[in-house]
Amino acid sequence: MNPHLVLRVVSKLLIPIIVIFGFYVHFHGDYSPGGGFQAGVIIASAVILYALIFGMDAAREAVPAWFVRAGSAIGVLIYGGTGFVTWLLGGNFLSYDMLDPESTHHAGQHLGILLVELGVLTTVFSVMVVIFYTFASRAPDIPEGEW
């Protein structure tokens, strides 16, 4: 029987909750503590937990290395792109009010903050997973006795 049965069952239950909590931290960042950075780290920790329990090969199938490699650059592009869009709409770089100039309650600000935080989330999540993958693929497998 698998010696890590309890760990496997518990982490299978926990990982979806961790990911949902990460997205909650991101989308609720305007109203409560947290934001893209924290959300990215939380979602990355879910992937790392999966890799620790189920092995690197399973984690690489779930979240491929090319995906996080591209993601670390795409996040910066989302952030810069938001600034570029406000620029094209006639405002300054990252002046979010241009995204919805008619709004009386600053809907543009909300949208802009959500978008740049999405960029932060993508980059932070990808870089954390990339660093973990590169470290973990160099480390020898943990011997059974050291768990």
Binding site: G29, D30, Y31, G35, H105, H106, Q109, H110, I113, E117
Partner: peptide
């Protein structure tokens, strides 16, 4: 118009 001032300072 964002309740969390930290987010407003950080992102806006």
């Amino acid at each position: 118009a964002v309740p969390n001032v930290v987010t407003a300072v950080l992102a806006s």
